[in-house]
Design a binder for these strands. Structure first.
Length: 229
DNA sequence: TTAGGGTTAG
């Protein structure tokens, strides 16, 4: 039952990779007689998280077959390591091979677009999501809100925010920050109040936007009060 | 919870 062995070995590889021990993961990986796509994907992601882009690339380029998770993991590897141009290049490669992105791929790519200010590609992916009936979940939603805001399209950013059914802290933070950096301090603070009324607990990212909005409004005391509550 | 990928900032 080789597939069963591969499953058990991959579980061990994964447990090392999860804690960042890629040396131990690698020893097991090299000793394995039967590897499957999951084994390769686990290794690539493990290297990506440690910032070892070269090792991730090497495995990605040498793996026998790739699935959508392999592609997304490699795109995210570049993105996590601030190589956003490379992330989009891999996404392009993937599309050229006729492989369709899923929700996870799209959230990752939209985030890379935000960092690069790549509004056209971001819009294209947004359209693709709408036209293909993909679920606009909190990952894609917050990535879109952030991407539009960073690309200077605050109207589109807020449109996505208000149309989004379920919003988590990431969605709220992205919208509040978008308002704050575009100088809409009053609106950012109003949105922060609405977030509190909806029982979403703020974090340090929220704090940065609220603080800058309060500063713009000359309300530094309010900022301190908000975060002591 | 049961082998693998995703969102804000820094």
């Amino acid at each position: 039952m080789p597939e069963r062995d591969a499953f058990a070995w991959t579980t061990m590889v994964s447990s090392h990779a999860r804690v960042g021990d890629m040396s131990s993961a690698r020893i097991l990986f090299d000793e394995m007689e039967e590897r499957n796509i999951t084994t390769w994907n686990t290794m690539i992601d493990g290297y990506a998280r440690l910032g070892n882009v070269e090792s991730a690339e090497l495995l990605f380029n040498h793996m026998p077959t790739r699935d959508i998770i392999s592609w997304t993991t490699m795109i995210d590897c570049y993105s996590q390591n601030k190589k956003f141009g490379e992330a989009l290049a891999v996404f392009n490669d993937m599309r050229m091979k006729g492989i369709s992105p899923d929700e996870v791929t799209m959230a990752t790519v939209i985030s890379a677009c935000a960092h690069l200010g790549a509004l056209d590609l971001g819009k294209e992916i947004h359209l693709y999501i709408l036209q293909n009936g993909f679920d606009l979940d909190v990952y894609i939603g917050s990535a879109l809100i952030d991407m539009y805001a960073k690309c200077g399209a605050l109207d589109r950013s807020l449109l996505v925010f208000f149309k989004l059914q379920d919003k988590n802290l990431f969605c709220w933070n992205s919208a509040i920050e978008g308002l704050a950096v575009h100088g809409f301090a009053k609106e950012a603070l109003a949105m922060f109040s609405k977030m509190e009324r909806e029982k979403i607990k703020p974090n340090g990212v929220t704090f940065v936007s609220v603080l800058s909005s309060c500063t713009m409004q000359g309300l530094l005391k309010k900022a301190v009060g908000d975060f002591q509550a």
